Computed example of a mutant assay.
Amino acid sequence: MKTENQTFGAEFILLGLFQYGQMNKIHFVAITVIFSVALMGNIILIYLIRLDTLLHTPMYFLFSQLSFIDMMYISTTVPKMATNFLSNSKTITFLGCEIQSFLFLTLGGTEALLLGFLSYDRYIAICHPLHYPVLMSKTICLSMVTCAWASSSINALIHTLYVFQLPFCRSRIINHFFCEVPSLMPLVCQDTSQYEYTVLFSGLVILLLPFITILASYARVLTVVYQMSSGKGQTKAISTCSSHLIVASLFYGTTLSTYTRPHSLHYPEEDKVVAVFYSIIIPLLNPFICSLRNKEVMGAMRRVLGKWIFVQKPTV
Rank of each mutant, 00 (worst) to 15 (best):
I282K: 03
T32I: 00
Y259D: 02
Y123G: 01
F251C: 03
T254N: 09
L209W: 04
E111A: 11
Y195C: 03
L113G: 05
V163Y: 07
N286W: 04
P129Y: 04
V205Y: 07
L166M: 12
T53R: 15
K313S: 15
P268N: 09
F68W: 05
T57Q: 11
W149T: 03
I212R: 02
C189P: 02
I124A: 03
K90E: 04
M59C: 14
V276G: 02
V247H: 09
C241M: 08
T160W: 01
I214Y: 05
V221M: 08
L209N: 00
D191K: 04
T3I: 13
P167V: 10
Q6F: 15
C179Y: 10
T53K: 15
R303M: 11
A148S: 14
F102G: 06
V145A: 11
T77M: 07
M72L: 04
K80D: 04
G108K: 00
I49H: 01
G299C: 06
K25E: 09
I246D: 07
M185R: 14
Y47W: 10
L86Y: 04
L256N: 01
G108F: 00
L256W: 06
G231W: 05
P268S: 11
F104E: 02
A156E: 03
M71E: 01
C290N: 14
A30G: 00
N42R: 08
R220H: 07
K25N: 07
F168C: 09
Y47F: 11
Y47C: 04
S143P: 02
A150L: 15
I140T: 00
Y123E: 01
V311N: 15
L292G: 08
I158Y: 13
G21W: 12
F94I: 01
I154W: 02
V221N: 10
Q227D: 09
F85H: 01
Y73P: 00
R170T: 07
E180H: 15
N286H: 07
T3V: 14
V247P: 11
L107Q: 05
L207V: 02
V199L: 05
F251N: 03
I214R: 08
